[in-house]
Structures are given as structure tokens and as C-alpha cells.
Design a protein around this nucleic acid. Structure first.
Lengths: 239, 239
DNA sequence: CGGGGGGTTGATACATGTCAAGCGATGTGG
DNA sequence: CCACATCGCTTGACATGTATCAACCCCCCG
């Protein structure tokens, strides 16, 4: 049904709503280039909680930009245990780890109802040749991902669990702020288990740390909603 | 003295010896492109232990490829404490975190006598336009860096220190193997303190863990030389 | 309504951080 | 070239934080 040229316009809307403009920011594309870009963006059927976007070993085809929802990525240790490597929020790009060896090196699974835009990579590379500014943008997006990961490393390097927890929460907070969140509430889509796995602590410890922070008046817990009350103190704990 | 065109040939040699061919691998450049590439690579004076390659806030100008030696990169927490984010060995590329916002976000300091090649980034981007394969290579290099960092995250996510230690050692081992190391000896250029900081444990614990592994016959410690005796067991501990 | 997964909380053992002392290697200045 | 100072490393003792096991509750979903 979507074979008519007009359908491209649908995709274009899709693209814009999925935030390609935001994602690629600072996107320096002019109208024409943007249109070319829009043409290559594919929509994907919405995923429900637990659906996989890709798995370890899958052939690399596309980058994915999260339109709404959230995902987690994880690898398996040699022992076969799950090891969470990251959480991905609306507006962020996944799959860049796969460019090098042409296959994915982690599993990406939706934590809630989630929709992504697909950016076929060969098309992206071709377009890169025609539009130098796109090449710059892609470099920047990848650079940002590198910085994000290194920031995480910095986060996890702390000795005390309280610090890691504080840094984790602040990190989520900042990422949401960047996306235009107005209030101080984090709607965690991941389980305590995921958080603990990610931070390298037992999930009971996550629970206790949160409770402790609540006691100190730093935040308020309502199931998976964390309302941050005292961001300054949280920052002080983070170090 | 080096103003004659011939001097470019020196630089070319420099480039090759610094491993641009290796670094950019799979480098698909043909002779002409490689020559262009060589032209843009700059040599840098050797650094001695403690010299800085760049610091947080420095304007981003170049990527750097380590010709020989090793470096560590670290950031500062809000509290002003050092937080090691990575160790970089011969043949690896630094500085990619800075592309996005045009300034460096960490400090890079030599851990021993070290020499790097400088790859001025604007020149690299220009050349990228002329040589599409270079663009692919750069994408791949950045992708590899992303994967490296995510692998580290996976490493640090474990609860037991023994595991982290094992993963750390194996990681170094693998990186050296890739660079053609033949024996199983790690010549650590970083202090126990750096390792502890990086792994999020007290440096005394690093010391004890190593001693413990030595007791079990997994490795042999001679100051900063770690001779791996039983890599299988080490892998089993790593999980 | 029942079941199950996720979350909290408590008790206990153990691992790790911290403080402290001493050792060894390295480099510097006399 | 040696002596000394310094830094890095190891090892011990102790207190504390965290993992682990277990019981229970809550909420969501079927």
C-alpha cells in the first residue's frame, strides 16, 4: 500500500516525529538534504515490553533511534549470565557498536511499549558521501555515544554504592532534562534487578539504598516513580 | 630542516610505523589515498611519564594514535577526585570523545615513555569527503571504541572484585595479543592505585586479589610484570 | 480470584574499605 | 657511587558495608 510517492511524506512525518532532527543535532542539513535523509528513514512496528530489537550475532543493518519508550542492552558473560550494559531512552541512538564488525555485540530489548526509527546504514553511508555535513553529524553522534559510555565508566568506578546510585539517578535525570522533561520525576522502566545488575550490586542493595535516600528526604519512591526532591544533596553524594 | 618535500616521506614512514595502516584497519585505502593520508599525519615529540597529551577543556584538534607506550585517561568528579576512565595501549586511538562538542572531556596522560601520531581532524574530515573508504574506516574505528567502552561497562558490572580483576587482566591480555604479543606477560604501566580507581575498589584490595591469584597458581607477580600462568582458570573466574 | 513476578525488609556471614606499619624499588642530590 | 627520601606496594587488624538467604507484601495480569 505504501508504494505511492506520497507515502514518503508519511515517512517524513514519521522521521520528524521520531526526532531525526533532534537526534542528529547539531544537524546542519538544509531542506534538500533533510528530505533525502527522510527518504531513507524507515518506520518500524511498535514493540511491546520484552520484544527484541536485535540480538547478539545479528547481522548489522541499521542504526535505530528511539522515538518513544526505552530499551536495555545487555551481553552474556561466558558463564551465561546476563550483564546489563546500558539503558536507552527516547531520542537516543542504538546499534553503533555493530558498525565495526558488521554484527551486533549485545541484545537490545524493549522495557516498555517502544517505537524506533530505523536508519539503514548502507543508505546512510551513501548519503554521507553526497552530504558532507551528514558525515560530520554522524561523527558527532558516535562521538557522543563514546562520551556517554565513558561517562558511565566514570560513574561505575566509585567505591561506594551510594555514590553509584546517586550518579545513576542524576544521569537519568540529566538525560530526561535534555529531552525536555519539566518535572523531577523519573519513571523507571527497568526493574531493580536490572539496575543492580548494571551497577554491579545486589538488587536488595538497590532497594535499600533507595529507601535510605527516601529517609533522608532526597527523593520519594512510588513503585517505579522516583520523585527527586533534593537534587543538590544528590549531587553532593555523587561526588 | 624538514621543509623539503622529501620530508613528507619521513612522515610517511612515521605514519606507517605508527601504525595508521593497522589502526584504521580494515583500511581499504589504495596507494594514492594512503599517500594523502600519510601527508596529514603529524609526528609529535615523544612524551615522558606524566606528560599530558590533552586536558579536560582543551580545544579539540586531533585524534591521536599511540605509536608505542601507554596512557591513562581520567576525569574529575564534582568533588575533585580523580576517576580513571581508561587505559590506552600501543596501537589504540584517543580523543574521539571530543568530536561532538569540540573539546576534550577527559585528561590523557602518559604512563611511560610514549609517542603518538597526531591526526588533525579537520584535515581528516576533508579527506573523508574525497575518499569514501576513509569515511567507512573512521566509522569503524569509532564503532570499535564504542564497543570497547561497552565491554568495559560489562566488565565493571560484576559484583565480585575477583571477577572484575580477572576481566581486567584478560582484557589487557587480549588487547596485547591483538597487537601481536607472543608471551603471556603483562607489563603493567599503571599503578595499583590506578587499577583500583578504575575498577572501583581500594588499591589494597587490588594488591590482595593479585596475591590471592598468585597463591592459586593463576599468575606470577614480579612488581609490575604479571605473568599469566593459567588463562583458562582466569577465564572461568571472569564468568 | 489466584498466581507470579517484582519489591521490601530482616538476620547473618563474609568481603572489602580503612587505618596503620613496614618493605622494596626507584630516582635524586650530595 | 652511595645515602637518603619518596613513592609504590604489601600485609595485618579491625570495623563496616554488602551479599546472601529467607520471609513477606504488593501489585499487576491472566
Amino acid at each position: 500500500m505504501n508504494t505511492k510517492p506520497k507515502s514518503q511524506y508519511n515517512e517524513r512525518s514519521a522521521c520528524e516525529s521520531c526526532g531525526v532532527r533532534q537526534l542528529c543535532l547539531p544537524v546542519s542539513l538544509d531542506g534538500e538534504a533533510l528530505s533525502l535523509m527522510d527518504d531513507l528513514v524507515k518506520r518500524r512496528a511498535p514493540m511491546k515490553k520484552g520484544d527484541y530489537l536485535f540480538r547478539t550475532g545479528d547481522k548489522f543493518k541499521s542504526l535505530y533511534a528511539i522515538q518513544y519508550g526505552s530499551m536495555k542492552s545487555y551481553g552474556l558473560t561466558v558463564g551465561g549470565k546476563e550483564q546489563v550494559t546500558g539503558f536507552h531512552l527516547t531520542g537516543e541512538v542504538l546499534g553503533m557498536d555493530a558498525i565495526d564488525e558488521d554484527e551486533h555485540h549485545c541484545n537490545a530489548v524493549a522495557l516498555e511499549k517502544t517505537e524506533v526509527c530505523e536508519l539503514p546504514f548502507t543508505a546512510l553511508e551513501t548519503l554521507q558521501n553526497e552530504v558532507p555535513s551528514l558525515q560530520r553529524d554522524l561523527n558527532k553522534i558516535m562521538s557522543r555515544e563514546i562520551r556517554r559510555d565513558q561517562h558511565m565508566l566514570l560513574m561505575l568506578g566509585s567505591t561506594t554504592v551510594e555514590q553509584r546510585m546517586a550518579r545513576f539517578l542524576l544521569n537519568l535525570y540529566e538525560r530526561l532534562q535534555k529531552r525536555g522533561a519539566s518535572d523531577n520525576t523519573l519513571n523507571l522502566s527497568m526493574t531493580r534487578q536490572d539496575i543492580g545488575n548494571y551497577l554491579g550490586v545486589a538488587f536488595e542493595t538497590v532497594s535499600r539504598q533507595l529507601a535510605h535516600m527516601q529517609d533522608k528526604g532526597i527523593l520519594e519512591i512510588k513503585n517505579r516513580n522516583i520523585h527527586l526532591l533534593d537534587i543538590e544533596t544528590l549531587g553532593a553524594i555523587a561526588g
